[in-house]
Design a protein around this nucleic acid. Structure first.
Lengths: 191, 191
DNA sequence: GCCAGGCGTAGACAGTGTCTACTCGATGGA
DNA sequence: TCCATCGAGTAGACACTGTCTACGCCTGGC
C-alpha cells in the first residue's frame, strides 16, 4: 500500500532508483534490475509489460523528487517572486547535477513511454508553478513564453554543465554566474 | 582522398549519416551500418576499433554541417551583431529540428568518445564565433558567460521543442516567440 | 479436497558489440 | 619467377540484451 510496499512492483522501482544513482542510466537493464531485486528476468514483465514502462516508473520517481525539492526551495510562497525563482533555478541545477543518472533518464525520451502521459502529470504542475512566479516577477510579459524560455535555459545549462561543455567553453568553474546571467536575462536585471 | 572516397572508412561514415537521418540515432548499430555498407559486421573494426568511435566520426560530420550552415546564416559578418545572432539562433534551431537524429547523436555524450576531443575542434570554434558576436552586441557584459547562457538556452529550446514539451507547456505552435524571448533576454530587448 | 488464477521460473529466440582465427589477394624483395 | 609478408575483410564464438512462451507452484474460495 505505501511506498515501501514489499510487492515486487514497488521493489523493482526502488531498485531502479538506487541503481540509476549508483551506476547511471545505461545500467538500468531489465535483467540487472531483476537480478538486484532477487527475481528472474521474466518476473518484471508481469508488472511492466515493457522495459520502457519500468524505466518510466523510475523516471516518475525522479520528477516527484524534483517537485518536492522545488517546493521546499520556494518555501511557503510569500517570498518575492524573484527570490523564489532564484531558489528554484539553483535547486533545479543542483538536482540535475546531484542526480545525473536520474536527470538523464528523465529527459531521455527515447527510453520513456511514447507520449509519456504519466510524466505529464508530474512535470506540468511543476511548469505551472514556474509560470505563476514568472507572471508575478514580470507582470507585462507573456508569462508562458518567458517561463518556457527560462525552463529551456535551465535545462540547457544543466545538460551542458553536466557534460563539462560549459566549463570548457566559458572557463567558469561554478555554474552560479551562468545561472545569474540567465535569471537576470529572463527576469530583468533589476528587481 | 576527398570526402567521397571509395574507401570503407568514408563509406561507413556516409552510410551512418544517411541512416541517422532516415531512422534516428537508435538505428545506428554497428552491424546495421556494416550491412548497409555491404561488408561483414567485423569489417568496421579495422577503421573504428569501437562502436563509439564510428559514432563520433558520424557526429563530427554533423558538427561540420552545423558550422557550415551557421557560417552561411551569419553572412560576411558585416551585418549588425544582433541581426547575425538572430540568424544564428534561427539557423541553430532549424538545424536541430531538421536533423533530429543527427542532433540527438551530437549531444548524446554517452554515445561518443569520452572527452570527445575530436569534437571539441569542431564545436569550440562555433562557440568562439558566438562569443565574438555577443561581445559586440553587449559591450559591457562578460561575453563568455552571456554566450554560454545563450547557447544553453538555444540547446534547451531545441531539445524541449523537439520532444514537444514546450508546445505542450506554452501552448505555442511555432518556436519563434520562444527564440525571440530568449534573444531579447540575453541580448537586451532594445537594439 | 479440489481446482482455478495469480505469480514467478526457465528456456528459447533474435539482436547487439567485441574478440579471435582465418582467408585471400596484392605487393615487394631476392 | 617465386615466395614471404602484410593489409583488408570474413566468419564464428561469446556474453550480453529485451521479448515471448510454456511451465510449475502455491494460495484462496467453493
Amino acid at each position: 500500500m505505501d511506498a515501501s510496499d514489499t510487492g515486487l512492483r514497488a521493489r523493482l522501482v526502488d531498485v531502479g532508483v538506487e541503481l540509476v544513482a549508483l551506476e547511471g542510466a545505461q545500467a538500468l537493464t531489465l535483467r540487472e534490475i531483476a537480478r538486484r531485486a532477487g527475481v528472474s528476468h521474466g518476473a518484471p514483465r508481469r508488472y511492466f509489460p515493457t522495459h520502457l514502462e519500468l524505466l518510466s516508473a523510475i523516471a516518475r520517481r525522479g520528477f516527484a523528487e524534483l517537485a518536492a525539492q522545488v517546493a521546499t526551495a520556494t518555501g511557503d510562497g510569500t517570498a518575492p517572486p524573484r527570490e523564489q525563482l532564484t531558489a528554484l533555478g539553483r535547486c533545479y541545477l543542483r538536482f540535475a547535477l546531484d542526480h545525473r543518472g536520474m536527470y538523464e533518464l528523465m529527459f531521455r525520451h527515447d527510453l520513456l513511454e511514447s507520449g509519456h502521459l504519466g510524466l505529464r502529470g508530474t512535470s506540468l504542475p511543476l511548469f505551472d508553478g514556474l509560470v505563476e512566479l514568472v507572471g508575478r516577477a514580470r507582470p507585462g510579459a507573456d508569462a508562458r513564453i518567458v517561463a518556457g524560455a527560462l525552463w529551456a535555459n535551465l535545462h540547457g545549462i544543466a545538460q551542458l554543465w553536466g557534460w563539462g561543455s560549459l566549463q570548457l567553453a566559458t572557463g567558469a568553474d561554478d555554474f552560479t554566474p551562468l545561472l545569474s546571467s540567465a535569471l537576470d536575462a529572463h527576469l530583468g536585471a533589476g528587481s
